[in-house]
Design a protein around this nucleic acid. Structure first.
Lengths: 336, 336
DNA sequence: CTGAAAGCGCTAACAG
DNA sequence: CTGTTAGCGCTTTCAG
């Protein structure tokens, strides 16, 4: 490994000078600078970022904690952060939280050991109190997909209620009057919020959503299938299904087809998230676009800013809105 | 930040002792150890891994370089590495290479600055020579999805030829005789290999694959659609399509349906990779399972082993095989 | 404009 | 079994 000392020795200068050259400090003469740069290039020297982090009290590293990187949503989230990291010359440290409170915290701590002060956390199971405390301990912590009023300026979130409302309103506008809702059993907040949004839109239109028209299951394809099968089994009548997310929506479509119902001719289905999947299935899924990548990018920039000592972050809020993407899984209800 | 010194002072011992306790060195008395542990817990002390890396000459960090984390395939790859990292108490550093030679190398270098000696690289565009040189420079570098004979013991790869052969043979066994191939324009090796495997299986069955039955396009859904439309436009006759990957297969199915052809009744389609998508589309896609997660996990363990000074890695080879997953997109050819 | 020197937090001999 | 000491590679005053 070639160190700053090697460069200094060969260039015939002190390590301090080399350091200055590296950091483009103006405090060094042009000839000297040129010589040092030459030696750096020749030796292929690159500064050891561990040493830099050690002395600098902070590493140019941004950490990301999400449940599971192999899920499309989180991979996209990571990508958004990566872009910001790359542009700001930060490195990206990742850890899966695996949907467990304990490993969520473990993951976070492992990042802190690295002096990683900019952290994007997608927390599913830690409570507000824990997170608020964490945010106070870690100046560069930003929560994504979560809203906690006390630390609002550290939360980058999406208005789930508004998104679900919009989805329901769209279905209403298409003429639907009989709805079913397929939601998630997970109690991390989002499902309730989306159901609430749906309810609000329907109530405004004078339509009641009976509890029998709501079916809960796991938030994946199988869950969507199960939920729709349960709905069908109990004779629930509907011309449109609002699914918690795209995965459940796709499962719903599968179950519908298996039962001889066509989408969207007999039943319309709307999803949420706009995963890559939504463009791949048939019919292509009409859904609410969740701008994760954009949000993650924003969150990352925010986390980095938060660590810049001079910048003062006010109590601004970071709210994003879901956007309707019309594709092929929604049509007006069948006649009669 | 609480340091080892704080712990030492409060526990009334030297930093060396604290260090020993941290590393479970047996060289410390039980009472003393207990006291130190207590103080560590009380203070919430966690060692600074930058300092550890600095003195230890190597950081417990494993790096991953892939084109784009938001792609399902690479997210899954990262997950495989993450699991191994977590189990071995390593941290995960990620960098996107964005499908460019230069950023591939940039990404790699940024990892090296971190003293990150265990690296998993998914290289698409660097040539054998560059990679061989890199492998010599970085003892813990492991290539995934690439085979270079000279550094075979550092390559974790999949036999694409065999996989494609198997897919073609499966179609042959179902009774198909008229094939079309939808492949990728990217020249990173895989497409050629898969076409070659297909050719081999067909030739063995005495079937010729005319160049007109092969259509190239981008390796995504749109590419699959385009390719099939081109095939259809030039009046190519086939009862089965072998797609370069699942994305192109799904695109192919879309184009087929748009043209009034049913899958699998009129035309069978087989994919490659077995992305989550393959289970979500309709008909569910029959495809060759690419065990990326398993391979990545293996590669990560290998990379970590490579950095353990005493272990001698022989010239073993690390070849994985694709496996057929039968779902619903393949059926016997229509009568006549 | 440049160098000397101190020290970031930690580990690893070497003593005792 | 435990403490002392000397750095790891780098940045940053403080002098010059």
């Amino acid at each position: 490994m070639v160190t700053i000392k090697d460069v200094a020795r060969i260039a015939g200068v002190s390590t301090a000078t080399v350091s200055r050259v590296i950091h483009d400090g103006a405090q060094v003469g042009p000839v000297c600078r040129a010589r040092v740069k030459k030696v750096i290039a020749e030796l292929g020297y690159r500064p050891n970022s561990n040493a830099q982090a050690l002395v600098g009290k902070t590493s140019r590293t941004i950490g990301v904690v999400t449940p599971k990187l192999s899920m499309s949503f989180f991979g996209t989230l990571a990508c958004g952060v990566e872009k910001s990291a790359r542009e700001n010359n930060y490195k990206l440290l990742m850890a899966n939280s695996l949907y467990e409170t304990k490993s969520e915290l473990d993951a976070l701590n492992s990042l802190r050991e690295h002096n990683c002060h900019s952290i994007i956390l997608h927390s599913d199971y830690s409570d507000h109190k824990t997170l608020t405390k964490l945010a106070n301990d870690i100046p560069g912590l930003v929560l994504i997909n979560r809203y906690i009023p006390k630390i609002a300026n550290r939360c980058v979130w999406l208005d789930n209620v508004q998104g679900a409302e919009q989805a329901a309103q769209y279905l209403l506008d298409k003429g639907h009057r009989k709805f079913a809702v397929v939601t998630s059993i997970y109690r991390n907040g989002d499902p309730e919020l989306r159901v609430q949004g749906t309810r609000q839109a329907l109530e405004r239109a004078g339509i009641d959503l009976p509890n029998t028209a709501i079916e809960e299951s796991t938030a994946n394809i199988e869950g969507g299938e199960q939920a729709v099968n349960a709905l069908l089994a109990k004779g629930c009548k509907f011309t449109a299904i609002l699914a918690y997310n795209d995965l459940m929506a796709i499962g719903a479509i599968h179950a519908l087809f298996a039962a001889g119902l066509r989408v969207p001719q007999d039943v319309s289905v709307i999803g949420f998230d706009d995963l890559p999947l939504a463009r791949a299935c048939r019919p292509r899924l009409t859904t609410m676009h969740y701008p994760v990548e954009e949000m993650a990018n924003y969150a990352s920039n925010l986390a980095i800013e938060l660590n810049e000592p001079n910048k003062k972050i006010g109590s601004r809020t970071h709210l994003f809105l879901a956007e309707l993407v019309e594709r092929d899984s929604v049509a007006p209800p069948p006649e009669g």
